[in-house]
Computed example of a mutant assay.
Amino acid sequence: MSPRSIAIFDFDGTLIQGDSLLPFLEFLVGRSRARLALLHAVRTAVTRFAAEPRRRGDVRTAVKAGLLQRTVAGVPAARLDEAAERLAGWVRWHPPMLDALKTHAGKGHRVVVATGALTAYMPRLLRGLPVDDLLATGLETLDGVLTGGMDTHGNCVREEKARRVTAYLAAHGPFAESWGYGNRPSDLPFLALMRHPTVVKTVKRGGQPAAETAASG
């Protein structure tokens, strides 16, 4: 047993095939509305960043924020569980990474999933798996209704994910050994914190590429 060892996994494109956000929103508000909202969110974000070359921020996070605002604002939080249950039937796992997760757990390593996916559905998708903790993107609610915004922690991707992982390691460590699994380039900031980083070629729906070991640091 190695209780002072930790393995941290990305979710979308790493543990599962494809990305979970849009399918979840389709189950929540309908396919047409979700797809149209994505189109508008992309156009708006790209236009704003093109018009302001020095604009700070992450265009992908801007797209995500716009997508959420156009889909979940005004939706009762009570409806999230039903959509999460439907999403669970959509998920297709990436067998090599799922096996790696279970292997780490079997060795007594602490297992954490760190993802930009939503806390609205991640606990349902991870049910039954040996996962100790979840770092994910929360949705803001007011009086039981979604506002359309992310919570105060923001979007758990890239540098923000690395920041949360850093805080987690400090709070629960020290760890003698650490493994990280994620895809390039979005997970490189958090993988740089791991003693044993593994870059997984982004797994699209229906594909199962092999993993590759990242350069140290």
Rank of each mutant, 00 (worst) to 15 (best):
S2Q: 13
A7P: 00
F9A: 11
D12L: 10
D12S: 12
T14W: 03
E26R: 14
F27N: 06
F27M: 07
L28M: 08
G30I: 07
R31T: 14
R31H: 13
R31A: 15
S32F: 09
S32Y: 09
R33N: 01
L38I: 03
T44L: 12
V46L: 07
V46Q: 06
V46A: 00
A50F: 03
A50T: 13
R54C: 05
R56W: 02
R56C: 03
G66P: 06
Q69E: 14
V72T: 07
V75F: 08
V75H: 03
L80H: 01
D81Y: 01
E82M: 07
L87T: 08
A88V: 06
R92I: 05
K102M: 04
T103H: 10
A105V: 04
K107Q: 14
K107D: 10
V111E: 11
A114E: 04
G116A: 15
A117Y: 04
L118Y: 03
L118K: 06
L118T: 13
A120N: 01
L125W: 00
P130C: 08
D132Q: 05
L134V: 14
L135W: 02
L146A: 00
G148W: 04
G149H: 15
V157E: 00
E159K: 09
E159F: 10
E160K: 14
E160T: 14
K161P: 01
A162W: 14
R163T: 04
T166A: 11
Y168L: 15
A170K: 13
P174F: 10
A176E: 15
S178H: 10
R184D: 15
S186L: 04
S186H: 14
L188R: 14
F190I: 06
R195A: 15
V200P: 02
V203F: 02
K204Q: 12
G207L: 09
A215S: 08
S216N: 03
G217T: 13
